[in-house]
Design a protein around this nucleic acid. Structure first.
Lengths: 136, 136
DNA sequence: AGAAATTTGTCCGTATGTATC
DNA sequence: AGATACATACGGACAAATTTC
């Protein structure tokens, strides 16, 4: 059964369902979610789709995942500062960047950040800087 | 954003960027490239496009990819770390990096910076952060 | 201490539908 | 019409970390 994504994609529907269970206490904070393999049979979706759903919850900070262990419901920590795997934001050029780009210190730049994890631990953070597109 | 392939197709642009990072030492020989999923989010491209880009690098012999493990930078690639456009230095963790690495603000990190030029102009500056190797 | 089972991480190949150049 | 690229989804296989026996 290939890919009829009428309206909402499946992974989002599944993510919503799991979020509901977490917020309603079916999966309490600190507990482990069912394994991906269990979720595939329950939702009759492929593992990739399940993982996409879980990735969405992880991006919201609702759960954390550990290699070889499972996906754990985050203990009610509010104030979710960005923990996503990649994001983009605007920053001001430090002297080094300003010199490289040939602009004044404090000029707005676009920073793209990517986080690489290795067995749960953050291994490398990459930040790529670009000039903001200008209107000529 | 659909398909504005100004001049070059997107997968080639991405391949060029990754090649730059490899040759500049941001991704040193022996290290693993970020996963396809991470690259899709960083470059905001689909998996197919990312795979095309990596396939190009593989064909050049720059990387080898192992099923179930990842894509690894070939050992034979020259490391230009100490040449013109890339350098390594020690910096102190800002709050964002400290949060990601799980260390205190001000902890020393290794920063590797690479500058990518496009017909003379500085186009992108990439900074890769790693924890300093600990002596236990 | 060591082997097996479990579970997540990653890659491979393929497929459908949509949209833009 | 064709090439490029997007998003979504499937199923399979191997790798690696953790837990269990």
């Amino acid at each position: 059964m290939p890919t009829p994504h009428y309206g909402q994609p499946r992974y989002r529907i599944i993510a919503n369902e799991l979020r509901e269970r977490i917020e309603s206490g079916v999966f309490p904070p600190g507990s482990l979610l069912p394994a991906e393999s269990a979720l595939t049979t329950e939702f009759r979706a492929s593992r990739g789709t399940i993982r996409q759903a879980i990735a969405a919850l992880r991006q919201e900070g609702l759960v954390t995942t550990e290699h070889g262990r499972g996906t754990c419901v985050t203990a009610g920590t509010r104030d979710r500062r960005n923990e996503s795997d990649a994001r983009e934001r605007e920053v001001l050029a430090d002297p080094d960047l300003a010199g490289l780009f040939g602009v004044e210190v404090g000029t707005a730049l676009i920073e793209r950040e990517a986080v690489m994890r290795r067995s749960g631990r953050v291994e490398t953070v990459v930040r790529a800087y670009r000039l903001r597109p200008t209107a000529p």
